[in-house]
Design a protein around this nucleic acid. Structure first.
Lengths: 214, 214
DNA sequence: GTCTATACTGGGATAGAC
DNA sequence: GTCTATCCCAGTATAGAC
């Protein structure tokens, strides 16, 4: 049995079947998200990604051309996913109209924790401004989010800034893995509670408690 | 002339003189800040740090024991510096009392741009929660800042959270190197302006425009 | 206190088979 | 579409001289 089907974070794939190139790409991007998320761009290895996706390391490189390209693809996927979630929240508010838009979008952001590594990977990208290719993509991606708040939600500059700021804080808390010490360390517990004023139970349930050491 | 004195970001060091171990450590930490800041923990190499500090690569390792230890020392330095700046701003407000504390502290945070790489290095650390040693240090460091706002400034949980959030946004903007496209790209320009409602001129002056590609 | 030389390892990428 | 084998560079760390 050489065909390894190890710690796939993705959906169940029938063992015997050969996937299309597109399916594989999607699967690998999901895996890359978790690896890049916890180790960062440079810290992550294509082999870790390959292992997580259940394919060989050279194949990952083959499919994306290079580690850098894989990272760029992963960022793009993340932003598409993020904006899709925001738009859904916006649309839901327009109709149902029970709770304010802001609250809905905020919750959508937290819910994205379910896409493992998404927040952290984006945060890593945002720190790579000095990198020619990645930096450009990151800036452009951040602007996309900004435009969403300004143009689609219709916020003014100040309101939009506040949203971005709260989002960055949430990402930081996730990146810090503050949950690990939640409950045991009172300082951490207080900080954590304060940063997720609402949504606390949901977050605690969703955040990966143990198996994050891949 | 073997004694290289290349791109030292630090203060002028008389060429002929032998520094004490402590002086060297300080000098290397300053250099490490710029390198870790732009490349991240894994992306940075001890050789780049050595070059920036004007010493040999093995000596950097010798002095700190390992790259990881160097990073931990760099984080600790950054936090000490950060809190010192905050405390100074707090004290100044208590006396002079012209402008509100919050504004002063916010400005102090932005002013720290002058310590090259400080914001970015801390931001990188905050993303390394999965790393046993670094993650623990990062969490503990973040809590120190939190406690400052709660205990020393006397903010309630909600106010403190807002401060942290705005800080994370500023760090993100710096990490993204949004300045690079300031002026040329109108989108970026708008975003940048919105994120630094005040302090814009100061930031533009201080932020390293060109030589950030080390 | 600081360097040069170097050992050792890990990881991205390529070649080529199946 | 996917693997195995492998090349090769980059980068941390050590040994030991000055």
């Amino acid at each position: 049995m050489t065909s390894a089907a190890p710690t796939d974070p993705d959906v169940g794939e029938e063992p015997g079947r050969r996937l299309s190139s597109q399916e594989r790409r999607a699967q690998i991007i999901l895996a890359a998200l978790t690896v890049f998320g916890s180790r960062g761009y440079e810290g992550a290895t294509t082999d870790q990604v390959a292992k997580a996706a259940g394919v060989s390391q050279p194949y990952v490189v083959r499919l994306f051309g290079s580690k850098e390209n894989l990272f760029l693809a992963t960022i793009e996927f993340s932003l598409d996913r993020l904006l899709a979630a925001f738009r859904a929240a916006l649309a839901a508010s327009d109709e149902g109209g029970e709770r304010p838009v802001g609250k809905r979008i905020g919750e959508a952001y937290v819910d994205l924790i379910e896409v493992r590594g998404l927040h952290q990977t984006l945060a890593h990208a945002y720190l790579l401004g000095s990198n020619p290719a990645i930096g450009a993509a990151a800036r452009q991606g951040f602007v996309r989010v900004w435009r969403f708040f300004r143009d689609e939600v219709g916020l003014d500059a100040d309101e939009a800034r506040t949203f971005l700021a709260e989002g960055m804080l949430i990402s930081t808390m996730i990146g810090l893995r503050i949950v690990d010490d939640y409950g045991s360390d009172p300082q951490i517990t207080e900080l954590f509670r304060a940063c997720f004023p609402n949504k606390l139970p949901h977050v605690l349930e969703v955040l990966p408690r143990n198996e994050h050491r891949l």
